[in-house]
Design a protein around this nucleic acid. Sequence first.
DNA 1: GAAAATAATATGTAGCTACATAATAAAGTC
DNA 2: GACTTTATTATGTAGCTACATATTATTTTC
Lengths: 233, 233
Amino acid sequence: MTVQARLSWADVRDEVRARILNRTYAPGDKLPRDEDLAAELGCARTTVHRAMQDLTLSGLVERKRKGGTHVRADPVTRATFEIPITRLEVEQRGGRYGYHLISRAMEVTPLPIMARLGLPEPARMLRVKALHLADSRPYMVEDRWIDLTSAPEILNVDLSRDSANEWLVRHKPYSRVDVRFHAVNAESDSARHLATEVGQALLVIERTTWIGRDPITTVQAIAAPGYQLTAKS
Amino acid sequence: MTVQARLSWADVRDEVRARILNRTYAPGDKLPRDEDLAAELGCARTTVHRAMQDLTLSGLVERKRKGGTHVRADPVTRATFEIPITRLEVEQRGGRYGYHLISRAMEVTPLPIMARLGLPEPARMLRVKALHLADSRPYMVEDRWIDLTSAPEILNVDLSRDSANEWLVRHKPYSRVDVRFHAVNAESDSARHLATEVGQALLVIERTTWIGRDPITTVQAIAAPGYQLTAKS
DNA sequence: GAAAATAATATGTAGCTACATAATAAAGTC
DNA sequence: GACTTTATTATGTAGCTACATATTATTTTC
């Protein structure tokens, strides 16, 4: 067993994080310059730089040119979550996926939808409501608006067979996404679709995607009772 | 106005993303080798590498040694959110922050809490319930368990003045965090604290932090009606 | 012809240099 | 003394080289 030949940037990150955790560098403190840390630890400045980038990303330190690196005094909890295609999400949990189209129609966007999409004026869009099932039980209902300027091909898709969710994710990569969570009491429609009672608390995931400045779609997905969304650092 | 002297990794990322968006590289396709792309675009392989790392992080492509880079066929929506100290969150929204300690006691961890913390057997921990206010109106109630092995100094803190949330975030940096969201119907306690009716749908944010393998704290924060959590890509 | 050993290959990473950039500090100007 | 200009400095980034590593492809061996 020999000493490790080289320090990787991950090693440096772990070392610096350890020092922050054991208060060698306390919140608000200024860290040594990358160059000095590199000299001390016996690696190149680029390696320290790479490590610092990672710590910046996870919200532990703040860096400024000339100003140096500081341990954040007001750390934020920063976490990342993933929302896969709903079919895959169900299958990953070991369930059998089912899909049911509820409705499909051209409609004029009401104000809240315009706000979500950032539209200055109303537009006619394709509105699709659908139900996702896991083992024949309701899993999630979605109420979606699709901009036909960005995704005209959706008209050729048989939405009674294939979900707009899957088609869009597969065929319309976006450059920007906005995700919001909140809770609602089930009203009669969603209660019926999700086979629960009116008033039941439900998690709502609102997702809007753009390609450049052009909106593609916005969905309000309401999950069945018990649904939990997980994020990790 | 001259041509830009050099391509930055962000330029390369944008170019590759544009090609994915306009289906020059379609989902599932294999991208050129970093080296070839570098030659084509007129930059170094390291620059392409950096760009590809970013695209990998955002879930657009997948890379494997020797296997090359592929456009993901099943893209995931990957987004990051931040949870600041509650006081700062209120102040950032332009509100006046208030805090009220509800209760503080040593208790033995019940099963659900043990599960959250990953404890094999029950332990006595400090349980703190508190209310955060914005402009004198309820903003969030938290029900927190604190491991005194990891954070014994919390006993010296006057929790009727200072929130455990703020003290912990400032003094106990963690190395791992787990965040979960779900919706609940308000029961009598939370309804009373949040000044709403029993049954009202509320967003629950459950957060657990560890330092190495040792748990620090786990909180169940229930937000007042109307609360919305935002994430971005 | 199947299994094992070997070669080939694309990405991953570390080190170096050089220069860009932003923020601050110092010096100079009226 | 307040304002402007000029240095200084720490991080940010690009290019290069060299080598590590994980797969896949090929060849060898029995």
